[in-house]
Amino acid sequence: MKKNSPSFSGRFNPNEILLSAPSIVWLILLFAIPTILIFLIAFKSADAYGNISTHWTLDNLRALANRHYPMIVWRTFWLSCLTTALCIGGGIPVAYFMARIPRKGRNLLMILIVIPFWTNFLIRIFAWKNLLHPEGMLKQVLVFLHLVAPEQPLLYNPWAVLAVLVYSYLPFAILPIYAAAEKFDFSLLEAAQDLGARYSVALRKVFLPGIRSGIWTAAAMVFIPALGSYVIPDIVGGAGSDMIGNKIAQRAFINRNLPEAAMLAGALSLTVLLPLLIYLFSQRRNKHQLLTGTPP
């Protein structure tokens, strides 16, 4: 039997299916089925005891028209976008620096980046609460430096949420960008300079495109969890800084209305999944074009 015969290209071969079976099963059991369940529950109604009734309804869809939601969706969106931008903006220089220093220093930095994970997430968020507290250290220092007025609160506003979001997700941006930067061939920057580019231009035109896969991964790793964040706005955000995650939690735990929570969660998933699917689909088309030389 010939390997790579043309009729095979683009199709799965039996070995591949066998090898990827465990991860496919995993995805189906732990991702696809729960997601479908959430979409299904979203069209049920809740009974008086907080259980899911057998009754199908579109009420939850109508409930999405809540007049508070647009503001919350907007806040969730801009906080997530800004968090992503700041994490990537911070992650690129760190990754660049790490990729250029000797290997020993890299490992040390890597440990420093990972060390905070040894402390429980909640404890770290509470630590931020202490820092930003009116009597907290950070606040005192900033007041002392005349950077904020003594009466200005640092806690319980969207900016506090942003700061803690960036703090929490920065490592998730650094790691994929660093993984890409480590593979980047830095002699390309010399080649660009050799051709007349200033160093800043070389960085922009050669380094950034060179690590773009890392940047995209970082964007997904930060943006998606940021969209769904709920603990951070809950602890440092206060009343006026709710995100969609808080609303989902409220529907599930306080109103005991799981279907409505499911509807909100489903809507959130769709806003994340749809663009991703469109992106993947367009990639596939490109790939197909590359392989066959003709558009499908």
């Binding site: 080649a191 051709l195 231009v201 060179g210």
Partner: peptide, 27 residues
């Protein structure tokens, strides 16, 4: 002064034509 590098150091994200044009574009 321009260099042909030992490993060529071509920009992998650009096509042949874009690689060649690079030096004029950045200036």
């Amino acid at each position: 002064v321009n260099t042909i590098f030992q490993n060529y150091a071509l920009f992998p994200h650009l096509s042949v034509c874009e690689n060649i044009a690079f030096g004029l574009k950045v200036t």
